[in-house]
């Protein structure tokens, strides 16, 4: 087995940001921008006695995905929880603006965001918050320009806080069983509202509220994939070939209608199992325990019901 082949069979969850990028893109096609040798590191972590990383936990660059030119950004969820800091955030902002301005000699036809983040890096909270806002604005500009912006979520840190909002701004979201999207993390809700509102130590509960299976079934994600780099790659190739809907009134009006309908349908639910029972799924309590094969079979039987674009 070649190095790349073994890379693709590997678990997305276990892989580093660099391994995900290498396995996701066509073999050997990745070219990094502002790489680790440039040592663009956080200017703030030292005052907290925290070690820095040569890439500040974000890898950005270009490559080919099934022959299509793409720009890609990947967060390393194990470094500082994949958080948005001044440098790590600005690297993503720069990548998106470069795509928007078609600055490169061969501009990209799609942008991939490999999110793996707890949200804003609190040690540099103000810079991180602004970076999230700048990323959201830049994604809107890319959508205005008609480019697909695809979020891939299946890492340990999930896509929380500003990362959850960014994931939802993209034209498509690919998620695995391990992926989670949310705004407030379970610990934050428990701290502020009490353990009876959200017991953050109840892992099964956390996944039922924020996890990939819940997100795909409620229409909050577009593709559900196995925890394999190859599966994320196949989904990204399929989505990069689709023309996203125009960034226009009709599209956002349709989103409004979908989001209102989701609230009407599920607004009284306190747990995903209630939501699934309401959706007519047999044995909703079993959904989290289904094998991947069984869950994917369940999904394909319901493909018409997704409310995302």
């Amino acid at each position: 087995m070649s190095a790349v082949a073994s890379c693709r069979a590997a678990s997305w969850l276990e892989a580093s940001a660099r391994a995900r990028v290498a396995g996701l893109l066509d073999q050997g096609s990745f070219v990094e921008f502002l790489g680790p040798e440039q040592r663009a590191m956080s200017p703030h972590l030292r005052q907290f006695d925290l070690p820095r990383a040569f890439d500040d936990g974000v890898v950005v660059g270009r490559g080919l995905l099934g022959g299509v030119r793409v720009f890609v950004a990947a967060q390393e969820g194990r470094f500082m929880g994949g958080t948005f800091g001044e440098v790590s955030g600005a690297k993503i902002v720069g990548l998106l603006r470069a795509a928007r301005d078609r600055a490169a000699p061969s501009p990209p036809d799609a942008v991939l965001l490999l999110l793996d983040t707890g949200g804003v890096r609190l040690q540099e909270a103000n810079a991180g918050e602004l970076a999230v806002s700048e990323i959201i604005r830049a994604i809107a500009e890319l959508r205005h320009a008609g480019l697909p912006v695809i979020a891939l979520v299946g890492g340990r840190a999930g896509a929380f806080g500003g990362g959850g909002i960014i994931a939802a701004c993209c034209t498509a979201l690919v998620i695995s069983q391990h992926g989670r999207t949310s705004v407030s993390g379970p610990e934050v809700i428990e701290t502020n509202k009490g353990v009876e509102e959200f017991d953050s130590k109840d892992r099964a509960l956390v996944w039922r509220i924020t996890g990939g299976r819940t997100r795909i079934l409620s229409g909050a994600a577009d593709r559900y994939v196995r925890d394999e780099i190859a599966a994320f790659r196949d989904a990204a190739i399929a989505l990069a070939g689709l023309t996203p809907p125009p960034f226009a009134c009709e599209t956002l009006r349709a989103a409004q209608t979908r989001l209102v309908a989701r609230r009407e349908r599920n607004g009284a639910c306190r747990d995903a199992t209630e939501l699934w029972a309401g959706d007519g799924i047999d044995e909703p309590d079993q959904v989290p325990d289904l094998t991947e094969d069984a869950f994917i079979a369940l999904l394909s039987a319901r493909s018409a019901q997704h409310d995302r674009r």
Binding site: T181, V183, I209
Partner: peptide, 9 residues
Amino acid sequence: RRDELLGLN
């Protein structure tokens, strides 16, 4: 929990 379950993001 309710808002996060619905997908507040």
